[in-house]
Amino acid sequence: MPSDHIADLLKDDFDELTRARECDRFAERLLYKLGAKRRARLGVVTFAGGLGAAFAASQFTSVVSALAPALAESAPEMAPELAMAGVSPQFLAILMLAGALAATALVLRQDF
């Protein structure tokens, strides 16, 4: 029996084995397992984020009223212009909080 015949037999056998494994669920099961760590991290971050958001919402009014005078004092020369444009210190404080939230969301989006 020539050696190249052995190679042919091995190759045929290998191709048959490969074909049988191409369409089963191995890859999906493996990828699900690979995603488990990511999903666990997402769960923890979602939980922590939700808790933080709930706390922030409950404190929103007091945070805004604490921030607004500080903002008004930090740039007194801007105050008349802002008042003319109809932008209150409260609105600026809300904008600042929304910016922080958007930045957090951006970082999380890259992570997941």
């Binding site: 056998d13 290998f14 084995l17 490969t18 074909r19 494994r21 191409e22 191995f26 890859a27 493996l30 990828l31 690979l34 995603g35 990511r38």
Partner: peptide, 22 residues
Amino acid sequence: DERAFATLVRRHQARLRAFLTR
């Protein structure tokens, strides 16, 4: 990119498993 690794898995899994089976 998880999709890139998923493509690598789908591309190589059948032949790797055939090799290991034998």
